[in-house]
Amino acid sequence: MAKTPIAFSLNGMERSMFVDPGQNLLDALRRGVGDLSPKYGCAQGTCGTCSVLVDGKLQLACITLAEAVAGSSVTTTAGLADGSELHPLQRSFMDNFAAQCGYCTPGMLMAAKALLDRNPSPQRQDVVEAISGNLCRCTGYEPIIDAILKAAAFMRTRGRP
């Protein structure tokens, strides 16, 4: 079956590739482009570890048709850091022990980024809602919620996007 050519922006870089009919975005990113930061968990939209931003909106890459992102701007966890400087969310996750096995971490970071882009001063309940589609089997969620709230506070004082 014929492949479809698509062009999109990935973490600010223009990308062109061929995708298979019905191929999901997670597979296209991991196997096609080599961006391994969105993780493969359930492939059914349930765990959230494949979360990415498509035109600024949180989406699940495993249930996004790859060819549907043609012309869009996709952001993955690999695009969060500024060179060697970690994004405040990443640093806060490290400082607050918000990752144990780390499998949920990329999805949690993207869900948190989507929240803070929209609401720089979230309440605890906003954070709980924002990560409600992301499963973590290790931390009990509390360190993740704290890390996001602390990153938000830091970003408000430092003004980093």
Partner: peptide, 21 residues
């Protein structure tokens, strides 16, 4: 939105040959 159709595709359990968008 594909949230259910794509799950079926990922798991190979779909009873159709053509996806229309």
């Amino acid at each position: 939105g594909g949230t259910l159709v794509m799950r079926d595709l990922n798991y190979g359990s779909y009873g159709f040959e053509r996806l229309v968008r």
